[in-house]
C-alpha cells in the first residue's frame, strides 16, 4: 500500500494516472461505529481542497468527508449508498467514496504515507 496516502481527516487516497480514489480509513469507520447512511457528491462537481463533499452517518453521529485535493468528481460508489454497512466491512477497499480528477499530482505525493499516518494516529491517541 505504498501508493496510498492519508489525511489528518482520516481519509485515504490512491492515485492512478490523474485520477485519485478517496475513502475513509479503517480507523475512521471504527471510530464512527455502524454506518447507516452515505451521501456522495454529484459527478462533474469541481471541489476545492478541504471542501466538504460527502457525508457519512453512523447510528451515533454525522460526519463530513472532505475533498483531500482540489479536482473534479468523475465517479462515485453507489454500492455504499445502497449498503452503507460496506463502509464498516471494507473501508480501505471496496467501500471507496469517490474518484477525483486532479491537476496537481505533486500535492498527492505531499500527503502522509502509511508510516506517517500510523505515527499520526499514535500521536492522536
Amino acid at each position: 500500500m505504498s501508493d496510498t496516502r492519508f489525511t489528518k481527516d482520516h481519509e485515504w487516497l490512491r492515485l492512478d494516472g490523474d485520477i485519485v480514489t478517496v475513502g475513509i480509513t479503517d480507523h475512521a469507520q471504527e471510530a464512527l461505529g455502524d454506518v447507516v447512511f452515505v451521501e456522495l457528491p454529484e459527478i462533474d462537481r469541481e471541489v476545492e481542497e478541504g471542501e466538504a463533499c460527502a457525508v457519512v452517518e453512523s447510528v451515533k453521529a454525522a460526519s463530513d468527508v472532505y475533498a483531500p485535493l482540489a479536482g473534479k468528481v468523475v465517479e462515485t460508489n453507489q454500492a455504499i449508498v445502497d449498503d452503507p454497512s460496506l463502509v464498516n466491512g471494507d473501508a480501505m477497499g471496496e467501500a471507496w467514496f469517490f474518484k477525483l480528477e486532479i491537476a496537481d499530482a505533486a500535492a498527492f505525493e505531499a500527503l502522509m504515507d502509511e508510516e506517517a499516518y500510523t505515527a499520526f494516529l499514535a500521536a492522536e491517541e
Partner: peptide
C-alpha cells in the same frame, strides 16, 4: 472527518 463519539 472527525471521529465523533456520540451526539449525547
Amino acid at each position: 472527518m472527525p471521529a465523533g463519539d456520540s451526539d449525547a
